[in-house]
Amino acid sequence: MTLNQPREPLLDISDYRLAFDSFDGTAQVLDGVSLRLEPGETLGIVGETGCGKSVLARSLLRLNPAPPARVVSGSIRFEGADLLTLSEREMRRLRGRRIAMVFQDPVSYLNPLLTIGTQMTDALRGQHAAVGQAQPSRFVARAEAAALLASVGLAEPERLLASHPHQLSGGMRQRVLIAMALAGNPALLVADEPTTALDVTVQAQVLALIAGLVRDRGLALLLISHDLGVIAASCARVAVMYAGTIVEEAATATLLRQPRHPYAQGLLAAVPDLDRPEHRPRGIAGSIPNLLRPPPGCRFHPRCGLATERCRVEKPLLRELAPGHNVACHHV
């Protein structure tokens, strides 16, 4: 690549459509998602449960089991290569080494029967094997794992390596998962609801840890959450997802101040405001659509106060309202 070429973003998802096949039919889980992420940038994805945000996160490591998952169209370019067309072998070179993932529930995402040490050294050795390097000995990998545990603020790493997951607290387990994600020194960290399963006080610590790592290591962060507060605390930009589509994308401060999409407005209105106790949180009427038979046109129109005939027929595309502020709605 020559220097004159425009710099390619770290991650460029373009018109990505993913369907899940089942006996009942085909669910269009992701319907034309487009997102870009620059190196070192932090992007949050917010949306209700079932809107496809976790599926999107897993797509980046190709962890959605296929079948039932089936890519319909689009591309996910990461560091110049399309993740959707890579072979499984090439994909393994990226997992943990270039793209790493922190999962939601540290109880179910750690193997209950293996020690933390075994799980970490297996990951470390596997990452070397994937790029054809000689695997470090178990002894060396173990020392590396201990250093990683120390780097996420865990005391007595040697003792931790010999422990099983059930012997740790929830916060410790999540730190272990984060340490594992850092093992390959990745360029992109995908965090899927990293704090949802934790106590509130531990949530703050884990978020601070992630924010610190992103800052110190220059990681790009894709943070998935249903909690706008979590995203506001750690991401510069935020994308709002609804039923498999991105409906609005903006700088976090802009979105919190002036959301433009009716769904984003609804989400914000549903958040209680401690400074204004007279302002009662309001829910959004209705529920998320059945993706086996998604509504035609704008997927939000059955729940939207502004819906018109056009919304029922024509799917609104993401348009740039202002630099860096995109909205998919016929009414803004």
Partner: peptide
Amino acid sequence: LRADYITAARAHGTVPWRLVAVHALKN
């Protein structure tokens, strides 16, 4: 093989044969 911990171990780069013969088989 469907368990979350297998997905996670795969995401972290654990080699496939160890995923199957150790991580999943032990459970």
